[in-house]
Design a protein around this nucleic acid. Sequence first.
RNA 1: GGCCGGAUGCCCGAGCGGACUAAGGGAGCGGAUUGCAAAUCCGCGAUUCGUGGGUUCGAAUCCCACUCCGGCCUCCA
Length: 531
Amino acid sequence: MPTMFYNTLSHSLMEFIPLTPGPDSADPLRGAFVRMYSCGPTVYDYAHIGNFRAFLFADVLRRYLEFRQARVQQVMNMTDVGHMTDDALADGAGQDKLQLAVEKMKATKKAGQAAVADPNDPFQVADFFTEVFLADARTLGLAVVADYDRAADAAAREAVMPRPTRHIAHFIQLIQRLLANGHAYVAADGVVYYDVGSFRAYGKLSGNELDRLAHGAGGRTNAQAAKRHPADFFLWKPDRTHLMRWDSPWGQGYPGWHIECSAMAMHFLGESLDIHTGGEDNIFPHHECEIAQSQGATGKEFARFWMHTRHLMVNGEKMSKSRGNFFTIGDLTKKGYDPLVIRYALICTRYRESTNFTLQSLHEAAASIAFLRDLADKLTPSVAAVDEAAGDAGRLAVHEVSLAPGEADMIAEFSRALDDDLNISAALAALFTWAKPLAQKGRLDYPAARSGLAALRRVDHVLGVIFPPLRALPVAVQEKVDALMQQRLQARRNKDFAASDTLRRELSALGVEVKDTPTGSTCRPRLVPPA
RNA sequence: GGCCGGAUGCCCGAGCGGACUAAGGGAGCGGAUUGCAAAUCCGCGAUUCGUGGGUUCGAAUCCCACUCCGGCCUCCA
């Protein structure tokens, strides 16, 4: 079955064939090289779960391509340049997001909780939130951050998760190219604008054709005398008073908020990419403008596939700062939710459906993860024993372990579902339909267990919730847990069940779940707080 | 005003013209098992897919109308 993805650009499902396909035309993903750019966060505040839904969608997509044995080069920007926030004054007179972050930082410093040494320095503030973002993304298992952490040096890290403040020279070069070929102009006010009238395809992605943009009743394009067309957007704005500013041929100032993605994507991935991802709100104007900039400069198709995830709702309402109904990763982990539970809850519905987030959805996710992890735990011992005896020869790469028919069928169905525009609900159904009977069986022999475990490892390359370790307990807590487990063991030997139950409750309060089996008691960290 | 999506059991969510007596997950109830739990097992639960029409031999799936919900239209993932 061909791999079909919904392409916002064509407004339809299209077969995904990489620009650099693999050698087998019947399976172009196997051995392909895929260039993928994912719009990342603006690091001016703590990212919330809605932001992470978009990043996790890109992550699942990337991991699925890898599951199909493509090699993926994924780049995700971390925007550390502030952009204007006041849309009524969208062309530059509004307040800058990093400026706002700086104000907030100063306020927290006054309150005695300094996160950075100098809250007046927007670069320090951006660095602070960048680190917070990276830490959150790590706990959620974003593969792009694993790439970043594996990178050999600063330049290699930059090539994975670039920061615009380090690429101002590239922006200037791109703007010069657009000026040279007539897609941009310097207006009377000294601002460099993109000339949307010069780009025929403007509006193709979003459906916002130029005439409609100008006349739509709710359209907020602002007619400024200096612009040729109300929809023209600025590429560089000279402003000596701006908080973050750089030298340029057009005077000291700052770049427009679309140029960074065009410039960095093309710098690191080349002038044509396979896939560009983002949240649905990015479609217009951000991605529309990126296409205009990139294709205006190169004359080549910028990205073949544009894929956008719908927004996350919280308790049936749009998530927004004014309503205060958003969660950060920190909010949830502090309540006692394991990050893997958050990951599962955010990826288990299809990316093109708007989905509703509730605390209940985290509990549902925890039940699903616990089941799959229990199954993996059950299969592991017999496999580990044999494979370890065999030494390195026994430890095959996941793709090399041969699967029994039952597992092969499940993997095929899982893959077929994801080929259908990442229909993860159907993919999970295939997984559970296979896993349930397996979990019911007693101890499996080595070949069966090995096949089952290999299948779980393959699907978990996409899901990322079965094999990653749960978060560790703090050392002091762990020591206390160990001591209580010892006490409980003693109590159980003495058949003092009242004491045993009390200890189980105490352990639960410490965040671990105790399980008694014929061979002894085990405990593990709770995935979610007690109900 | 313009442009897009969506409405499936108690909840989440697949299915998009015949194998639907509607996948899968969660919660619930009754029973087995267990010192009690957890896990596991067995059993129960939409004659129905927002409402009303239509097309068809056949519709959750296609068409029309209506109701409701959500998104975008230069802050946003």
